[in-house]
């Protein structure tokens, strides 16, 4: 359930978690996100680190602060994230996929067929729910 790992700084992972929520729609635009203390308590991490992750998103315009009330998802945040993630998707997934395919001698057509085949697959049941619960 806990998705904090040791590969990179926790504040980046917190930022990513919030981004995930925005991208998959569980955190709607103009809705309030949990406070940094709530993030810290939930993920059992240092509150200063949680704040750093949230502030990263404030700085990039994904979240905005309402004085005395809390933190909200900005308008247009989802579109902004999807655009960035698409680029990252290519780097993180398509490239290694192509590399591994070449290693195994899988042609581009075969790869296409495989991707089509997988599009009929359901995501693991419950995954979305767990993710939004985690946030």
């Amino acid at each position: 359930m806990l998705m904090i790992d040791d590969s990179k700084p926790i504040f980046l992972q917190i930022a990513e978690l919030i981004e995930n929520g925005i991208v998959d729609g569980s955190m709607a635009e103009e809705s309030q996100v949990p406070s940094t203390n709530e993030f810290a308590a939930f993920h059992r991490i240092n509150p200063a680190t949680a704040a750093k992750g949230v502030n990263l998103l404030v700085d990039s315009g994904i979240l905005y602060k309402r004085r005395g009330i809390g933190m909200f998802v900005a308008k247009g945040a989802r579109a902004q994230l999807v655009a960035r993630r698409t680029e990252e998707f290519f780097e993180q997934y398509v490239k290694p996929l192509a590399l591994e395919a070449r290693k195994l001698g899988i042609s581009a057509e075969q790869l296409n067929t495989m991707i089509e085949r997988s599009s009929g697959l359901d995501p693991e049941p419950g995954t979305d729910k767990e993710r939004s619960a985690a946030l």
Partner: peptide
């Protein structure tokens, strides 16, 4: 202990 520490430290 860890949970209470984080909660109370945040407050």
């Amino acid at each position: 202990f860890y949970d209470r520490l984080v909660e109370d430290y945040a407050e």
